[in-house]
Simulated scan of single mutants.
Amino acid sequence: MTDIFSLSGRRALVTGGSRGIGASIVELFARAGAEVAFCHYNDDSRAGALQAQLAKNGLTTHARSCDVSLEDDVDGMTRWLDASLGEIDILVNCAGIGGDKPFVDLSVADWDRMIAVHLRGTFLVTRAHFAKMVKRNYGRIINISSQLAYKGSPGLVHYSAAKAGIVGFTRALSYEGAPHNVTVNSVAPGPIDTDLTAGMSEQFRAMKMAQMPIGRFGRTDEIAPTVLLLASEAGSFYVGQTLSPNGGDVMV
């Protein structure tokens, strides 16, 4: 790995880091030299397995359970981070949930939970660290959105709205961060093989793959390098951007 992509000496937090895209980001950041902490939501088993796997390669990580939609949980995690790592340099807001439902069947509780985890969670965790990054005149914030922020999908109105909100949040906050060397960007993946897509029917998966120019769903390790770019000095000129590794899905 060339120096321009190195995260040596940097401290990073990845939310939703015990599985899926988050876990791939945790692993790649650790391999790039960062001291990495990640949070998960009541997923101690997978978090422990990821830490043990990385430890075999001499990579130490820090993990904690946290519901990013709850202010008290986020405040507690921030105090834990300050004590165990110190102030972070890189934040990746990756925590998210899935669940498809036709709009006519969508309850207020369904809507509120989706918005709370994706959008409120991104706000709460970013708020906990943004001012400290500004004060230190350094920070990298990467928010995980989705290509559905742009194209939408039947049955995923609440998910698409939450992810579109993250894109708007990213663009607006980038104006406030950039003068202080705090870059704010987002990544909008296409369909990826994760727990969120595992529940799709085989018929839907086959239809979706047939639509995509690349002919398949992506892997989580195909998304993490884009996040590394934005977190490293190689991405220092990206401000308020949304990069979309999506296999051509947005062209469909």
Score class of each variant (00 low, 15 high):
residue 90 I to A: 12
residue 90 I to Q: 03
residue 100 D to M: 12
residue 141 I to S: 07
residue 78 T to H: 13
residue 88 I to Y: 07
residue 241 Q to H: 08
residue 160 S to K: 04
residue 192 I to G: 12
residue 48 G to P: 00
residue 70 L to S: 10
residue 5 F to V: 03
residue 232 S to Q: 11
residue 228 L to C: 13
residue 117 V to M: 07
residue 181 N to V: 00
residue 154 P to Y: 11
residue 180 H to D: 02
residue 51 Q to M: 13
residue 57 N to A: 15
residue 65 S to H: 03
residue 69 S to M: 01
residue 119 L to F: 09
residue 34 A to F: 07
residue 47 A to V: 03
residue 152 G to D: 15
residue 114 M to G: 10
residue 87 E to S: 15
residue 195 D to P: 04
residue 51 Q to P: 00
residue 179 P to F: 08
residue 249 D to Q: 15
residue 20 G to D: 01
residue 156 L to C: 02
residue 166 I to R: 08
residue 157 V to H: 05
residue 49 A to I: 04
residue 119 L to D: 04
residue 50 L to A: 06
residue 38 F to W: 11
residue 183 T to S: 14
residue 109 A to Q: 11
residue 33 G to H: 09
residue 186 S to I: 00
residue 194 T to H: 06
residue 190 G to L: 04
residue 146 S to F: 11
residue 56 K to L: 13
residue 218 G to D: 08
residue 52 A to C: 12
residue 108 V to N: 06
residue 112 D to N: 14
residue 18 S to I: 04
residue 239 V to C: 12
residue 225 P to K: 13
residue 91 L to F: 12
residue 119 L to I: 03
residue 217 F to K: 06
residue 44 D to Y: 01
residue 82 D to V: 14
residue 162 A to D: 07
residue 247 G to F: 08
residue 210 A to W: 06
residue 179 P to G: 05
residue 53 Q to H: 11
residue 215 G to Q: 04
residue 220 T to R: 09
residue 130 F to R: 10
residue 93 N to G: 10
residue 118 H to V: 00
residue 180 H to K: 11
residue 225 P to A: 12
residue 103 F to N: 08
residue 169 F to R: 10
residue 59 L to H: 07
residue 217 F to Y: 15
residue 55 A to C: 05
residue 180 H to G: 00
residue 111 W to F: 14
residue 91 L to N: 12
residue 32 A to I: 07
residue 214 I to N: 05
residue 58 G to M: 06
residue 121 G to D: 05
residue 184 V to L: 00
